[in-house]
């Protein structure tokens, strides 16, 4: 009988340990809720017309890391950080910049962008900056679920989203530079 009791005890204890044995046995985190950042989410392609009138697809410019930036001319902080973004892209040849203006009227966006072009012609016309206006919010609300600005998606060469940056940022900071590197 004693032998049987010992066997039962051993089975009980080991079954408890076996049932709960997983790779995170000593971890204090709840692994089920562990987040997988953007979960290798595919970016979604869309057509857009550059303000110069040329037609593109997002997919066409994916040979570099894309900064897909949503902004509006009525948004003060968007206007404040716009030159910094242009500067960042200009200095880093691995980046392309697509600024999507969510203004109600195209004229409002154009007005601000022409000021930018006049002040920073080399940065706007370096071939890696695309400017477009989002008529009827097809890109912002419908495709990327963006309602508030500024919001910036970072898309890699495999056309996967690997980060999203909300609100205005110090684009020169180390933190942001790190986030732009996958």
């Amino acid at each position: 009988m004693k032998y049987k009791i010992i066997v039962i005890l051993v089975i009980l204890i080991s079954s408890v340990i076996i049932v709960n044995y997983d790779k995170n046995i000593f971890s204090t985190n709840d692994t089920r809720l562990e987040q997988v950042k953007f979960n290798k989410m595919d970016a979604v392609d869309f057509p857009f017309k550059d303000l110069s009138g040329d037609n593109f697809h997002l997919f066409d410019i994916k040979d570099k890391t894309i900064l897909l930036h949503f902004w509006a001319s009525w948004c003060g902080i968007c206007k404040v950080e716009f030159p910094a973004l242009l500067d960042l892209v200009h200095k880093d040849p691995n980046l392309v910049f697509l600024a999507v203006a969510t203004d109600d009227e195209i004229e409002d966006a154009v007005k601000f962008l022409s000021v930018m072009t006049r002040r920073h012609p080399d940065k706007v016309n370096n071939g890696r900056v695309y400017l477009t206006w989002d008529r009827d919010s097809e890109i912002s609300i419908k495709t990327y679920n963006v309602k508030r600005v500024p919001e910036t998606f970072v898309i890699n060469k495999d056309f996967k989203i690997f980060d999203k940056i909300i609100g205005n940022q110090d684009w020169y900071s180390k933190e942001i530079r790190d986030r732009l590197k996958e």
């Binding site: 809720l33 562990e34 987040q35 997988v36 950042k37 953007f38 979960n39 989410m41 595919d42 970016a43 979604v44 609300i141 495709t143 990327y144 679920n145 963006v146 309602k147 508030r148 919001e151 998606f153 989203i161 999203k164 909300i166 609100g167």
Partner: peptide, 24 residues
Amino acid sequence: QGVRKDNTWFSPWEVMNMGEGTPE
């Protein structure tokens, strides 16, 4: 979606208002 550090899920109404919108 991984925008924030915590793992809070969002209601459909909140998604865009909280900046959690993605193509997904």
